[in-house]
Simulated assay, not measured.
Amino acid sequence: MLGSAADAEDVLQETWLRWVKVDLEQVSDMRAYLVRITTRQALNRLRTIKRRKEAYVGSWLPEPLLTAPDVSEDVELAESMSMALMLVLETLAPTERAVFVLREVFDVSYDEIATALGRSPAAVRQIAYRARQHVDARRPRQVVPASLTRAVLDSLRKAIETGDLQGLLDVLAPDVVMVADGGGIKQAALRPVTGADKVARMFAGGIGKVNSVLTAGPAMVNGHPALVLRLDGRLDGVLAVRVEDALITGLYYVRNPEKLTRVEDPTPLSLR
């Protein structure tokens, strides 16, 4: 819902503080009541995040989470938190995003969502329809097996570590787009970089400091294969990809150290 583990934990805490003050004898449906509290807190936090983004330096990417390998086995969960889909959700209005996540990811009923948002079920159905159309038009066209993504990433890793320009070009789609997030703290392209040649030359020229050693290790991030980049052994960033037709069409490079606090230890996740 929020694209930030820290904000999600704050919402969880705020929800708990309200929940413990509730007279449970007056609550007929505890789950629905919790959904309502959490959704409204998340919407409030989304508006705060929107104001933060307006002052953010450069491109903004969701916070990467190191996840256990078995997360990828839950296709619905893995797809719902992929970097590519998270970026699509960023283009939705807060209410659209809330309705989409509750309906499409958690299968909450329209009536329950309507109660949580203080809207009519008919209005919620219309919001869900618009949000689904918007997301479907922009989400990845293919479900790519994790094994294929890992193979593509392995070729990318070797090319990055050796500065092999041709090796990079071999795995990048001609119209690949790279989005980098340094948050004004770490150096990163302020705008998306488009085109295989431009992206390849950025990596081949070295994204680290002169005389430094850049390594890229495989990891599961947001339920999908990714690379964790280290400069002289120190964490430098996380590189997630979007793969179509065995080529990389999207690169998402998070360098902002404030967003890298969840890539050393796996975060347990479940829709259940």
Rank of each mutant, 00 (worst) to 15 (best):
residue 146 A to H: 07
residue 259 K to Y: 05
residue 148 L to T: 15
residue 72 S to W: 09
residue 197 D to C: 01
residue 144 V to R: 06
residue 260 L to G: 10
residue 147 S to L: 14
residue 139 R to T: 06
residue 34 L to C: 14
residue 196 A to L: 13
residue 186 K to P: 03
residue 153 L to M: 02
residue 233 G to E: 06
residue 226 A to K: 00
residue 120 S to H: 15
residue 67 T to W: 04
residue 150 R to W: 02
residue 23 D to G: 15
residue 90 E to A: 02
residue 53 K to V: 10
residue 75 V to F: 09
residue 22 V to M: 10
residue 254 V to F: 05
residue 59 S to H: 10
residue 261 T to I: 01
residue 150 R to D: 12
residue 138 R to P: 00
residue 26 Q to H: 13
residue 227 L to P: 00
residue 96 E to D: 07
residue 257 P to S: 03
residue 27 V to M: 11
residue 254 V to C: 04
residue 86 M to A: 11
residue 137 A to G: 00
residue 144 V to M: 09
residue 100 F to I: 01
residue 85 L to H: 02
residue 185 I to H: 13
residue 70 D to S: 05
residue 247 L to A: 11
residue 219 A to H: 08
residue 81 M to E: 13
residue 201 R to F: 12
residue 205 G to T: 03
residue 29 D to I: 07
residue 125 R to A: 15
residue 73 E to S: 09
residue 217 G to L: 08
residue 171 V to T: 03
residue 161 E to S: 04
residue 183 G to V: 15
residue 246 A to N: 03
residue 261 T to Q: 01
residue 167 G to F: 01
residue 178 M to E: 14
residue 255 R to Q: 11
residue 245 D to W: 00
residue 123 A to V: 09
residue 131 A to K: 04
residue 239 L to N: 01
residue 89 L to E: 15
residue 61 L to P: 05
residue 76 E to Y: 01
residue 120 S to Y: 08
residue 160 I to A: 10
residue 175 D to M: 09
residue 256 N to Q: 00
residue 195 G to S: 13
